[in-house]
Computed example of a mutant assay.
Amino acid sequence: MMQTMYELVVHRRFERLLGGGRIPLYHQVKDTMTKISFFQHCVKYSLLFPPESMS
């Protein structure tokens, strides 16, 4: 499955693939953030952690 997602990213010339598997550290903020807002934060802040930085 991951190989297929990789091929799709290459074929469509995407810059990156977000998701597709487990979401590391999301469990720490799941009560306060949606998955989409978590991904947006990760892209905007280049994965700044700890989760206290996610407000």
Rank of each mutant, 00 (worst) to 15 (best):
I36Q: 10
Y45D: 08
Y26E: 00
Y26V: 03
Q40H: 14
Q28A: 09
E7K: 13
M5W: 13
K30D: 02
S53K: 09
R16V: 05
D31E: 14
L25M: 11
M54T: 01
T32M: 14
C42H: 05
S55C: 03
G19M: 06
L47W: 08
K30T: 01
H27W: 06
E15H: 09
I36T: 12
E15R: 13
L8H: 09
R13W: 12
Y45Q: 07
C42G: 09
H41T: 03
R16C: 10
K44F: 02
L48N: 08
E15G: 11
M1K: 10
P51R: 04
L47Y: 07
L18R: 03
G21E: 08
M5K: 12
F14Y: 14
H27D: 08
S53C: 08
T4P: 02
F39I: 07
S46N: 13
H41A: 05
F49K: 03
G20H: 01
T4F: 13
Y6E: 15
E52M: 06
H41E: 04
K35E: 15
I23R: 02
R16I: 03
G19V: 01
P24E: 02
L47V: 09
M54V: 10
P24N: 03
E52P: 00
G20N: 03
V10M: 10
H11N: 13
M33G: 00
M1F: 06
H41Q: 02
K35W: 00
E15A: 12
V10I: 07
I23Y: 01
E15I: 14
I23Q: 03
P24R: 01
T4D: 15
M5G: 07
L48K: 12
L25Y: 11
H41D: 06
V9R: 15
E7G: 05
Y45V: 03
H41G: 01
M5T: 14
Q3V: 06
F39R: 07
R12D: 15
S37P: 01
L48A: 10
F38N: 01
L18Q: 05
Y26T: 02
C42A: 14
L48D: 09
F49A: 04
L8K: 15
M5D: 11
G21Y: 03
M33K: 15
T4I: 15
Y26D: 00
F39L: 10
T34D: 05
Q40Y: 08
P50H: 04
I23C: 06
R12I: 06
F39A: 14
E52I: 09
G21Q: 05
S37T: 09
P51E: 07
M54A: 06
S46H: 13
F39M: 08
V43G: 00
M33H: 13
T32S: 15
L8Y: 12
S37I: 04
Q3L: 15
S46V: 08
C42S: 06
S55W: 01
R12G: 09
L17S: 04
Q28S: 07
E15F: 11
G20Y: 02
V43S: 02
L48F: 05
L8R: 11
F14K: 03
S37D: 14
K30S: 11
H41F: 13
M2P: 02
